[in-house]
Design a binder for these strands. Structure first.
Lengths: 139, 139
DNA sequence: CTACGGCTTGACGCCGACGTCAAGGCAAGA
DNA sequence: TCTTGCCTTGACGTCGGCGTCAAGCCGTAG
């Protein structure tokens, strides 16, 4: 199997595969013409990489999984190093989700406050000399 | 006030201010030496930019807020365009948080499954010929 | 013969928000 | 006078994961 076919079967591009090879992640043998050749097991490795990338893993973080598979283990996460990456990723996700939730809350508050201010001004404009609410400058 | 002082008072760098100016976000007057000069109100604009950036807003997304302040409004979010950005950001945050939560759940599952498999193998190793669980290859 | 498709390496482009370095100007203090 | 410090513009570096283009090789279908 050559690079184009492997890429297509994994739903990615030849360029990506060359990049993975340049990172030492997915080396290839060469045929008599210098073309890269791959085997079925390489498809397995590549799918492992793609799956983890879809989860937001950095390419480097997929390395333990790939090496685990290449070492003959049944799954990419059959090795301790992979579990370490899982746990670290979970921590990162929890931290990130927490930060984003806090930001979301603050932005929501800001929006609510700004809309209230806008409505307050609108009401004031509609009713001149009306009930100026909690403004210590008014009076 | 020159660029270094303004940067220090806003907790950022002169380089950042020059960048903002290059983007047309925070223009500066010049003194007789060609040095950038700023006034107190520029500090207000700059702080608005920094606050939004801390929330994860793109620099471009801070523009409506800055222009709103420059137009003389009491707050950067006193203008409709700013509220639009708020709402869009909230949607983005909700979507992102949702995706991350889904990924977190999947990674958590994978970790649990991998640990269970590992423990299963460990138990098998401790008890040779023992209760080989759900492995269709065993027997 | 020629076109075409697929492969090769090499190298620059991209995106965002600056960091960092180079080379030089200008003013005040020791 | 010399140094120090702050300022200027210009331009390249950073990071990740490739996209895209250039130039060229190889085999095959028409």
């Amino acid at each position: 199997m050559r690079i184009g076919e492997l890429a297509a079967r994994a739903g990615t591009t030849a360029r990506a595969l060359r990049y993975y090879e340049s990172r030492g992640l997915l080396p290839a043998r060469r045929d008599e013409h210098g073309h890269r050749t791959y085997e079925e097991r390489d498809l397995r490795l590549l799918r492992q990489i793609r799956t983890l990338q879809d989860f937001g893993f950095d390419l480097e973080e997929t390395r333990p999984f790939v090496e685990c598979l290449r070492a003959g283990h049944p799954e990419g996460d059959s090795c301790p190093a992979s579990l370490v990456v899982y746990r670290r990723k979970l921590d990162e996700l929890d931290a990130l989700i927490g930060e984003l939730a806090a930001v979301r809350a603050k932005v929501g508050e800001q929006l609510a406050r700004a809309e209230a201010a806008r409505d307050g001004l609108a009401a004031e404009a509609l009713v001149p000399g009306g009930p100026e609410p909690v403004c210590e400058l008014g009076g």
